[in-house]
Amino acid sequence: MPRKEAWGAVFKDITLGQYFPEDSILHRLDARIKLGICFALLIVIFMLKSYLQYGIMMLAIFILILMSKVPLSLYLKSLRPMVILILFTGIINMLMTDGQVIYQFWVFKITYEGVTMAAQMLLRIVLLVVASAILTYTTSPIVLTGALESLLKPLRVFKFPAHEVAMMMTIALRFIPTLIDEADKIIKAQTSRGADFSTGSPMVRAKALVPVLIPLFVNSFRRADELAVAMEARCYNGGDGRTSLHVPRIIARDYVACAVCVLVCAGVLVVNYY
């Protein structure tokens, strides 16, 4: 009965980020640089005004997609959850913007400005999603966590717990697969004793999950306790004075990537004045 497996599959489908292992220039780039570049691109995307600017940006993003060696279909997949948002903002923008009316029925007016606005919003959302997908497809979540920690470190001056946040993310990443396996085992154990997770209304099925979540929840407290003891036994004492196995080094190609990024961003912003 394939349906019986369905809930197990639900848990299995929670992917760890969306890293796509490949050997591309983008994959090898220092994660901190990649984060910085991605951030810069996102800001520039928000500042785009003319179609020319959008064109240049789309070309730049497209080149990045090719460089990432990640199949185009995956990028399209990353856009799928955004479809409703894109449609919704598009329609709202088309109908709510005042200006030169091009089509009218009952109380609704579609204006030239509204269509422009909707088109730009659509392009903007697509660009934002794809730009961040490039980062997450080419950087493993573990490396990304490390990069975040080192970028957030200066904020410790303002008492921001950079190390603690990074440690929490690391432990979460480490335990997600373990907890998924455990949930799977509990589901199988309860299914074998006659529990039904796959029939009934959504409400009934959600209720059926309660006896799965409770042992999972209780167990994770036990795990947390044991892990804390094990960490203490291994001399964990917070972030102060910690060193690291991997010291990421910024090399020539990282500087080149930075320079290219600055040029492209500056170019895109300046092109409107000519």
Partner: peptide, 27 residues
């Protein structure tokens, strides 16, 4: 399962040494 901290084997082996502030090459 409850005593491995890192999501990569070698990083977990390095955990105690990182805590003790041992130099990277030595780790």
């Amino acid at each position: 399962d409850n005593q491995i901290v890192a999501a990569i084997v070698e990083e977990d082996v390095a955990f105690a040494l990182e805590n003790l502030g041992v130099e990277s090459s030595e780790i």
